[in-house]
Design a protein around this nucleic acid. Sequence first.
RNA 1: GCGCUCGUAGCUCAACGGAUAGAGCAUCUGACUACGGAUCAGAAGGUUACAGGUUCGAAUCCUGUCGAGCGCGCCA
Length: 542
Amino acid sequence: MTPEALADLVRTAVAQLLADRGLDATSLPAQVTVERPRNPEHGDYATNIALQLAKKAGVAPRDLATWLAEVLRSQKAIAKADVAGPGFINLTIATEARGAIVEDALEDGYGTGTELAGKKINLEFVSANPTGPIHLGGARWAAVGDALGRVLEARGAEVTREYYFNDAGAQIDRFVRSLIAAAKGEPAPEDGYAGTYVSDIAAEVLRREPGALSDPETVRKVGVGLMFDEIKRSLHEFGTDFDVYFHEDSLHQDGRVAEAVERIKANGALYEKDGAWWLRSTDYGDDKDRVVIKSDGAPAYIAGDIAYFLDKRARGADLCIYMLGADHHGYVSRLKAAAAALGDDPATVEVLIGQLVNLVSGGQPVRMSKRAGAVITMEDLVDAVGVDAARYAMIRSSVDSSLDIDLDLLRKHSNDNPVYYVQYAHARTSSILRNAADLGITPGEDFALLTHEREGDLIRTIGEFPRVVATAAELREPHRVARYLEELAGTYHRFQQDCRVLPRGDEETTPLHQVRLQLVNATRRVFAAGLGLLGVAAPERM
RNA sequence: GCGCUCGUAGCUCAACGGAUAGAGCAUCUGACUACGGAUCAGAAGGUUACAGGUUCGAAUCCUGUCGAGCGCGCCA
């Protein structure tokens, strides 16, 4: 019996109980969940449904729990149902019913679901300014955003990954001036960009267009193009590719910005003050209203965002998710207000704010000075620890917390990264499967033989996978998958320590060997699927 | 000053309002004729920044204080 099936069973039992006792059943939640109790002595699963319903039903929680436990005990698949504490019900699954979990895990697509089926999600992340390489912060969004996209897809969503190139406006002008200065061998402009990448790109521009210095427009075109390529290449090497690389400039060129502005103006969503046109972003929590059309008639930056949102919706997105760094948290209200001004539902805008990545060395924070070009890039991180360790370090913690990265520590103790703990567990399962194949041993299905405590732990943990992925998708928190894999790895390592899978040299192959082999097989598949969701390799040997 | 986010073991971080707050690293003690020891068993480490409140139950929700990061342009 899988936890999902158990939850359904509990729900049915509750509904029946409420009806039998003539209690108010309207408060029964649509979804009843069972949880893994922290303390294994409490049983395989626990439900607090009696606590949730007691007050509404007008019954003492323990009474309700006692009645419910009685109903549940009559089920064949449930070996034990005990009331505990204020009204928890602890449930233990019959040993012979646990095989369903292993069988599920052996199916293709274990962990996937359909609750997001038919939902088109536009997922925008990274979107770093194309005036330099991706930094540590961008690496965090690249890893987390990519993993989130995979998790959402696993639960049925149709995801478009998108990178918004801010290639219009003053910062690009500064970048181009920096390129020209570098090409002439002059120092970077006061408000420009330094760093070797600037001179590298400047040199490449001159190599391709020797006469470029006389034509700033050529420098812009070629130089910015090279920067785009560089960013795409480094992201690709990081394992993150986008479906759409969107150029802000294109919105201005073909009139979509003007069109969007006209539309919200016609909606009466803008007001005029001091010769400019303003958006009422304060209605959505902003500090102050924002200018959309400047008094000189030119569109402000936010006008591009409005047109971009309109374009995403026109391309069919039901939901637009923006992953932004904490330094952009002010955008939340503006983007919501923009959607409302267009006559759209602000709920189609979902902004995820992630805290920043700090670089530390020897416990001291290191200031990354962009002006001096003294920055740690995503590529530096990958060079130091490799793609898998870099991605994993970024993904495994919640984006709600700022993250401290100590490069020296990572370099020195690269094996300390929990990713190796997980990958090694996968490699061990692969090794056993290889050995079994060499010995000609085939998996068995006599799950009732799996009575060892470690086997039960492993089966229960495998059974959690689909719900972990579902929760990660629902809460937009891919780090849950990473944490789950660490738990699974620990459970597996302990299993392999205590439970011999293959027969030793002088032993005959028994059905227990064979069913354990099947359990290892299922475990390996969950590791592979979980690591796949994170975009991290699942090596068969290390 | 106002706003947003955060504050959990020595360090890096978990814990969708649930039971005794968990992992890894670092420290200490054990298991090596090992289906791969990149592993396992155990010890030690906490007033979840602080003070109130709500709740059967709070690290989690509410209020205040302290501390940290970020944001407060007709820049992009």
